[in-house]
Amino acid sequence: METNNLTTLVIGASGATGKELVNQLILMGQNVKVIVRPLAIIPDTWETNKSISIIKANVSEIEVNEMANYIKDCQSVVSCLGHNLNFRGIFGKPRKLVTSAVELLCSAIEKNSNGHPFKFVLMNTTGNRNKDLKETFSLGEKIVIGLIRLLIPPQLDNETAADYLRLNIGQNHENIQWVAVRPDSLINESNVTGYELHASPTRSPIFNSGKTSRINVGNFMARLIIENDLWEEWKGKMPVIYNK
């Protein structure tokens, strides 16, 4: 494993998967900046860890120049941002929380362009198709996904966030390379275990979903940042991750 000391900005770091990612990056010897809500609960160990810089702010209120300043000494960014699983988080504003953050981060990266491509990892979902591969849903899946998209705003937000990277940034951007990681049903586990990576889902995300532990997602995303061979394998793609 390549262990060059890098700095990664993580948004959504106080979430269940974001915390696992930060811990994995630290275990791999990396420096991490986290942007967390002012009232977010974070591990006490983060406050005293010299490898972690903590920025308390609401991502939706950060201007592009401010974000550009936050990432000027970073080489990569990971978004584990998601809507809170309560009524206000699902149905309230901002409805385009993840998409707006992706747009903000990409604009900030462009302001800091230095000729070296910046790595952008987005946590996404198997409920979102990779249209570059012409992935399709069965009729039943289309009906259910359509209803979810109509009734649960975060679904559309996840789709448009990935589409921004896929369509607006694309495969040959001068300053930004990206990977959108698609876990299936997320579960909690204490340790990293074996996991499988696929270009597309191998099971129905609606009727036969698999399991993916949050710590495995964090491990894979951290490895993407650090291991150049793994990055080259998946850049510009939307890998699906399942627990073995």
Rank of each mutant, 00 (worst) to 15 (best):
Glu2Met: 14
Leu6Met: 10
Val10Ser: 05
Val10Gly: 06
Val10Tyr: 01
Ile11Val: 12
Ala13Gln: 01
Ser14Trp: 01
Gly15Met: 03
Gly15Ala: 07
Thr17Glu: 06
Glu20Phe: 14
Val22Phe: 02
Val22Glu: 03
Gln24Asp: 08
Leu27Ile: 13
Leu27Gln: 15
Met28Gln: 13
Met28Pro: 05
Gly29Pro: 02
Arg37Val: 09
Pro38Val: 09
Ala40Arg: 03
Ala40Lys: 04
Ile41Cys: 12
Pro43Arg: 15
Thr45Ala: 13
Trp46Ala: 03
Glu47Arg: 15
Thr48Asp: 07
Asn49Lys: 08
Ile52Phe: 02
Ile54Thr: 06
Ile54Glu: 00
Ile55Met: 07
Asn58His: 13
Ser60Val: 02
Ser60Pro: 07
Glu61Ser: 14
Ile62Gly: 02
Asn65Trp: 06
Asn65Thr: 15
Glu66Pro: 15
Asn69Asp: 15
Ile71Ser: 02
Asp73Met: 12
Ser76Gly: 15
Cys80Val: 02
Cys80Arg: 00
Leu81Arg: 00
Leu81Thr: 01
Leu81Pro: 00
Asn84Pro: 08
Leu85Arg: 11
Asn86Thr: 13
Arg88His: 15
Ile90His: 01
Gly92Cys: 07
Lys93Trp: 03
Pro94Ser: 00
Pro94His: 01
Arg95Met: 07
Arg95Leu: 08
Val98Ile: 14
Thr99Val: 08
Val102Ile: 08
Glu103Ser: 15
Cys106Pro: 04
Asn112Tyr: 01
Asn112Glu: 09
Asn112Gly: 09
Gly115Ala: 06
His116Glu: 10
Val121Ser: 05
Gly127Arg: 00
Asn128Pro: 15
Asn130Arg: 04
Asp132Val: 09
Lys134Glu: 12
Glu135Gln: 10
Glu135Lys: 13
Leu139Gln: 10
Glu141Cys: 10
Lys142Gln: 12
Ile143Tyr: 00
Leu147Asn: 12
Ile148Pro: 11
Ile152Lys: 05
Pro153Lys: 01
Pro154Asn: 03
Asn158Trp: 01
Asn158Pro: 09
Thr160Glu: 14
Ala161Pro: 04
Asp163Cys: 09
Tyr164Lys: 08
Asn168Phe: 06
Glu174Ala: 13
Val179Lys: 00
Val181Gly: 08
Ser185Tyr: 14
Leu186Lys: 08
Asn188Ser: 13
Glu189Pro: 05
Asn191Gln: 14
Tyr195Ser: 10
Leu197Tyr: 04
Leu197Ala: 13
Leu197Val: 14
Pro201Leu: 00
Pro201Phe: 02
Ser204Gly: 12
Ser204Glu: 05
Ser204Asn: 13
Ile206His: 15
Ser209Gly: 08
Ser209Asn: 05
Lys211Tyr: 12
Arg214Glu: 03
Asn216Gly: 06
Asn216Cys: 07
Asn216Lys: 07
Phe220Val: 15
Phe220Leu: 09
Met221Tyr: 02
Arg223Met: 10
Asp229His: 09
Asp229Gly: 10
Leu230Gly: 04
Leu230Cys: 07
Trp231Asp: 08
Val240His: 00
